[in-house]
Amino acid sequence: MKITKIFTFDSSHMLNGHDGKCRNLHGHTYSLEITVSDGLIEAGAKAGMVMDFADLKTLVEQHIIEPFDHAFLYHGANARESQIAALLEGWQMKTLRLPRRTTAENLSVEIYGRLKAAGLPVCSVKLWETPASCAEYSEPP
């Protein structure tokens, strides 16, 4: 059994070295679909649920929305992006250092990993960068 909850957050990023306009600093209103999979709870106040949607919301807001929303997302191993982050941090602006390039594909993998590490039985993450473009990461078989 699976359930899905949708979230949104706003972030900026850049893809240093990209051959298109995404090499420039820009932002997105991301739409995030989190799907969890588990058996149904058999007893108690939450019987018949995979997970209470309110509990799912709390975990996603804590581990994803809070750190990502209104932050400059940057690849910590990229010198140029790190310089921009340092400048923003000097102005007390929010940044989030990530271990890989901030493509939609990599962000979906990062989000999946953070939720798994938090103990959530996540089976897929779908991240919409625009209303027409998304990346999806699903649990390996």
Rank of each mutant, 00 (worst) to 15 (best):
K2F: 01
D52E: 09
L59P: 15
H26M: 08
T29L: 00
P67K: 02
C22D: 10
R100C: 14
G76N: 14
G76R: 10
T58R: 09
A77D: 15
G48L: 10
L87V: 06
R97N: 11
D19V: 03
V50P: 14
I111R: 05
S82R: 10
V125M: 05
H75I: 04
L59A: 13
T95Y: 05
E61R: 04
S82L: 13
K5S: 14
A104G: 12
S124V: 04
S133F: 00
D38A: 15
G27D: 00
T130L: 01
L120Q: 13
V50W: 00
K126N: 11
E33D: 11
T58S: 10
K46F: 08
A86V: 03
H13I: 12
N78V: 08
A86M: 06
G39I: 15
L127C: 14
A71F: 00
L25W: 00
E139V: 01
K5E: 09
L59E: 11
S37Y: 03
W91D: 07
Y137V: 11
Q62K: 05
R23W: 12
A47T: 05
F7N: 07
H26R: 00
S37P: 08
T95M: 05
E61Y: 04
Y137S: 10
S12E: 03
F9I: 03
H28V: 01
S133C: 04
K94L: 03
P99A: 10
K46C: 07
P67F: 01
Q62W: 00
T95F: 09
S31D: 05
A118G: 13
I64Q: 01
L56A: 06
Q62R: 04
Y137P: 15
K94T: 08
L88D: 13
W128S: 08
H26D: 06
I41Q: 03
L115K: 12
V122C: 12
H75M: 10
I41R: 08
V125T: 06
E66Y: 00
Q83Y: 11
M1P: 15
S31Q: 06
R101G: 08
R114D: 11
D10F: 01
F7P: 15
N24G: 09
H13T: 08
E129F: 00
L15C: 07
T29V: 02
G44A: 10
E42S: 12
G27H: 04
P140L: 06
T4Q: 03
F7R: 04
